[in-house]
Amino acid sequence: MIINSLAGIKHGNSSNFFLMAGPCAIEGEEIALRIADRIVHITDKLNIPYIFKGSYRKANRSRVDSFTGIGDEKALKILQEVKNTFGVPTVTDIHESHEAEMAAHYVDVLQIPAFLCRQTELLVAAGKTGKVVNIKKGQFLSAESMQFAVDKVIETGNDKVILTDRGNTFGYQDLIVDFRGIPVMKSFDVPVVMDCTHSLQQPNQSTGVTGGKPALIETIAKAAIAVGADGLFIETHPDPANAKSDGANMLHLDLLEELLVKLTRIREALL
């Protein structure tokens, strides 16, 4: 299946993987444009189809005082500006069904957070917009069970679906990645993405701030490409330690190009 509305984002016959990357949350116009400019430069050089990622609002936070956003409309307009400035598609999360139509005016891909991947009303609302729908696999679900999430979107008449793995809950404060899930989900005839940063989260820490293991991003990404992932999802920031959301598991922007060079070589070896 080819997602026709996103040039270069293909399943099965693409010569390279595609990349969803950007900051966890939209923190402001200047930093969003700076991150996008850097990633566009890198992906153009390496011939990697690129989708800019940024959450316009963070609804799932551990603590009530955690950063949630700069304002919905303001953040969505920044995502639109990234698209218009660099000519790349954009993706953002939605959390409730009424957000789908609003966000669809500004972005190309609507992302369903992992915790919400069973929410029928949300999946149907996203599907009805006609936009590409990226569904993150719940940490609590098997790869096989994601067929039902795909079906909910397809039954709206929208077959533009991506599935993204982000690891499985392991105990209370860790995640593990079962790479068997990638070929399983590819069998549903949709592109499958590996989220290389959220799969390294360490949730539910005693401080109320999620931890992470960013040193293993390269390991997860290499393995995902090796087993046939169509795309990668990587949150990246020029200063992760001071990012307003999920800094503990983000890749430093300065490390992105070297990583992508290695991954394109693995991809080439598999063709």
Rank of each mutant, 00 (worst) to 15 (best):
Q147A: 13
F170I: 04
A143I: 10
G181Q: 07
G127Q: 07
I162S: 00
G208D: 11
R180I: 06
F115Q: 05
D195M: 11
E121L: 07
D108N: 08
G208S: 07
D174M: 05
F188L: 11
M185V: 02
A104S: 15
T129D: 05
K160E: 15
Q205E: 15
Q202C: 13
G181D: 13
M185Q: 07
E155P: 01
T164W: 04
N158D: 13
F140L: 05
D195I: 02
G208M: 10
I112V: 14
V193D: 09
T120V: 09
V184W: 10
C117D: 08
R118T: 09
Q202D: 04
I112A: 03
L116H: 09
P183F: 12
P113M: 02
G167A: 08
A126G: 13
P113N: 10
V107D: 00
M194P: 05
Q173Y: 12
V107I: 06
A114I: 07
S142L: 06
T197D: 02
L141I: 03
P183E: 12
V107P: 01
Q201V: 05
Q205V: 00
G167I: 03
H105R: 15
L200W: 06
K152N: 10
A104L: 02
A149Y: 11
T210V: 15
E144N: 09
G167Y: 08
T207V: 02
V107G: 00
V153S: 07
L122F: 13
K137F: 03
